[in-house]
């Protein structure tokens, strides 16, 4: 049981940082960015390709696994952030002010385009992270620590530390900085934000860049978890994170963090009680239950008025 809870917590950390991207974009544009999962997938591909490149060129032997992982994460972050920025510019901005269904369909369209684009160019079979490489085995492949009944894998710990650090960093950014405060102001009243001199378009771009960067990190971590990246991996993780965002209260930053962790733990409890076969079912049952019982989510201030 405790082992499952630990696993759920680690998984929940990843859900949380993906959910942040959904919730920040929704907070400002009232748009569910269904392409967010694909941005994560592109991050995962970039990260795994970088790791594979490091392994293939011998760089991983030379500097060890962790520097390569850091490089993979930074590379993935940059590529995904560029995609997020471009998607908003090319698709959502021209549709701003259009009926709310148009950007939503646009988001679904972008999601399909990116999936098929990656499938065509990278192939339909997954690419694998070099996790049998000696450098990996020497660092994160080391044997687990046993603390009482819980066995903690080094990779789990890395994932959790990275997720907590990112959440703390984002929280500080949103609460303490000038741009972060402008983001909150814009999400509360976009017209008024313009009237105090905030460049609303810039704030929206920053929101997409940050959300996409977070998704990229989550993508690389997920790829390590599953040892692979695949063109359709964004769909499931995207839906899970969307569930987490709704659970916590969409549009609400602490809500997304809470929702992600709760969803991970709830899945773990479900696996414990009902078996792992229905793993994917639990989160969507939770999504339905939240939408029926408390549509504004745990910390949500407002009911979702758009799909």
């Amino acid at each position: 049981m405790l082992q499952n809870l630990w696993n759920g917590l680690v998984q929940g950390g990843i859900y949380a940082i993906v959910a942040l991207g959904y919730t920040m974009v929704y907070g400002i544009l009232l748009l569910i960015n269904f392409a967010h999962g694909e941005v994560l997938m592109i991050g995962a591909y970039t990260g795994v390709a970088t790791l594979a490149g490091c392994a293939g060129t011998g760089a991983m032997e030379a500097v060890g696994f962790m520097p390569c992982l850091a490089m993979a994460i930074i590379g993935a972050t940059c590529v995904s952030a560029a995609y997020g920025f471009a998607i908003e510019r090319a698709v959502y901005r021209p549709l701003r002010g259009a009926p709310s269904l148009s950007p939503l369909i646009g988001a679904i369209g972008v999601s399909m385009v990116l999936q098929n684009y990656v499938m065509r160019t990278q192939g339909a079979s997954p690419i694998y992270a070099p996790m049998s490489h000696p450098a990996y085995v020497a660092s994160l492949g080391a044997s687990n620590w046993d603390i009482g009944p819980v066995s903690i894998a080094p990779l789990d710990l890395v994932v959790l530390v990275v997720c907590v650090a990112l959440m703390a960093g984002l929280w500080m950014f949103v609460q303490r900085t000038r741009t972060g405060t402008a983001m909150r102001a814009t999400s509360q009243d976009r017209v008024m934000a313009g009237l105090v001199g905030i460049d609303v378009n810039r704030v929206i771009s920053v929101t997409f860049v940050i959300g996409s960067a977070l998704a990229a990190v989550a993508g690389v971590l997920l790829a390590l978890f599953n040892t692979q990246a695949k063109y359709d991996m964004g769909f499931t993780s995207g839906m899970k994170a969307f569930t987490a965002a709704v659970l916590g209260g969409i549009g609400n930053v602490p809500g997304a963090m809470l929702g992600g962790v709760l969803l991970g733990v709830a899945e773990a409890v479900g696996i414990q009680l009902l078996g792992a076969e229905y793993k994917e079912v639990y989160s969507f049952v939770i999504l339905l239950a939240v939408l029926i019982v408390r549509p504004k989510g745990i910390l949500g201030e407002r009911v979702a008025e758009k799909v």
Partner: peptide, 26 residues
């Protein structure tokens, strides 16, 4: 040229201090 719109449009979930800071965003 500053515009104080109808209905005041205070940023409801920003503190008074943060509202003023946003007024000085530029």
């Amino acid at each position: 040229l500053c515009h104080v719109p109808e209905g005041r449009r205070i940023f409801a979930r920003l503190s008074v201090r943060e509202n003023l800071a946003m007024g000085a965003f530029l």
